[in-house]
C-alpha cells in the first residue's frame, strides 16, 4: 500500500502528464474538500439514491432469487431474463431512463436497481439450487414440513452465497449511482468530478474518485463483517 502511494507520488512528480498530480497533492485536496464541506455533502446526496436503490434491489432480488430456486415455473420464466440482464451492458439503458423519468431521484434509483438487481437475484437463485441435498433429505427424514425445510435449512445454507450476491450488488449499485450522476445530472459525487474536471482541479478530482472507490470497498467489507457477526456463528466464536 505504502509502495503504491510512493509510486504514485514519484510518477506525479516527474510528471508523466499534466493531468496526473502527485499523491500528496491529492491528499491535500481531499483535506480541503472535507474542510469546506463539499465532499461530505456530495456524499450525502449520492448516498440517497444508492441506499434506496439497494434496499429495493435487495428485497426484490432475494425474494425473486429464492422463489426461482424453489419453484420450477419461476425458474423457467425468470432465470433466462436475469441471465441476459446480468451479461448485457444494462448501463446502455441509463440514458433512456433519464429521458423518461427526468433527472430526479427516481431515475437515479432506477439506475442503481437495474444494475444491482440481476446479480442479487441470480446469486439467490444459485444459492438455493446449491443447498446440500443431503441436508434437505435430513430435514424431511426428521419430519420437517415444507416451511421448516425452507426456513431452517434452505435459507441458512444459502445465506453465504446470497450475501456474496449482495456484495456484488452493492458494487454494481455504486457503478449505477456514479454513472447516473455523471450521465444524468451532475449532483453529488458526479457533480464534484465533473466540476473539478472542468476547472482543471485535477488533484480534487482524483481525491473524489479515490474516495468513492475506497468508500465502496469499505462498504462491501463492512457487509462481510456484519454477515459473520449476525449469521455465521460457526465462523465467529472459535476460529480466529
Amino acid at each position: 500500500m505504502v509502495l503504491f502511494c510512493l509510486a504514485w507520488e514519484v510518477a506525479g512528480r516527474i510528471p508523466i502528464n499534466v493531468a496526473f498530480p502527485p499523491f500528496s497533492d491529492v491528499v491535500a485536496a481531499f483535506g480541503r474538500m472535507v474542510a469546506d464541506g463539499s465532499l461530505p455533502s456530495a456524499f450525502l446526496i449520492t448516498l440517497q439514491p444508492l441506499v434506496i436503490g439497494l434496499v429495493v434491489a435487495t428485497v426484490i432480488g432475494i425474494v425473486m432469487g429464492v422463489g426461482m430456486g424453489l419453484r420450477d415455473e419461476l425458474e423457467w420464466a425468470g432465470v433466462p431474463v436475469f441471465v441476459v440482464m446480468q451479461a448485457a451492458p444494462m448501463a446502455a439503458l441509463i440514458p433512456l431512463i433519464t429521458y423518461v423519468y427526468g433527472i430526479g431521484l427516481t431515475a437515479k434509483v432506477l439506475a442503481v436497481v437495474i444494475l444491482a438487481l440481476p446479480v442479487i437475484a441470480l446469486n439467490g437463485y444459485k444459492a438455493v439450487r446449491n443447498v446440500s441435498p443431503s441436508l434437505r433429505a435430513m430435514c424431511r427424514s426428521f419430519l420437517g414440513n415444507r416451511r421448516q425445510e425452507i426456513f431452517k435449512i434452505v435459507l441458512p445454507d444459502a445465506s453465504p452465497m446470497i450475501f456474496a450476491g449482495l456484495r456484488l450488488g452493492i458494487s454494481a449499485g455504486f457503478v449505477g449511482v456514479v454513472l447516473a450522476e455523471l450521465l444524468i445530472t451532475p449532483t453529488g459525487i458526479g457533480d464534484l468530478i465533473t466540476y473539478h474536471r472542468s476547472i482543471a482541479d485535477y488533484a480534487e478530482m482524483y481525491a473524489v474518485i479515490a474516495t468513492i472507490i475506497l468508500f465502496s470497498a469499505v462498504t462491501v467489507g463492512l457487509l462481510e463483517r456484519v454477515e459473520i457477526a449476525l449469521f455465521r456463528p460457526e465462523k465467529k466464536e472459535h476460529s480466529a
Binding site: S132, S134, L135, A137, M138, S141, F142, I153, P156, D157, S159, F231, R232, P233, E234
Partner: peptide, 14 residues
C-alpha cells in the same frame, strides 16, 4: 424411523 447419513448431514451453522 430415524436416518443416519453417510455424509453426516450436519448443519454447519448450528
Amino acid at each position: 424411523r430415524a436416518f443416519v447419513f453417510q455424509d453426516f448431514a450436519l448443519m454447519p451453522w448450528a
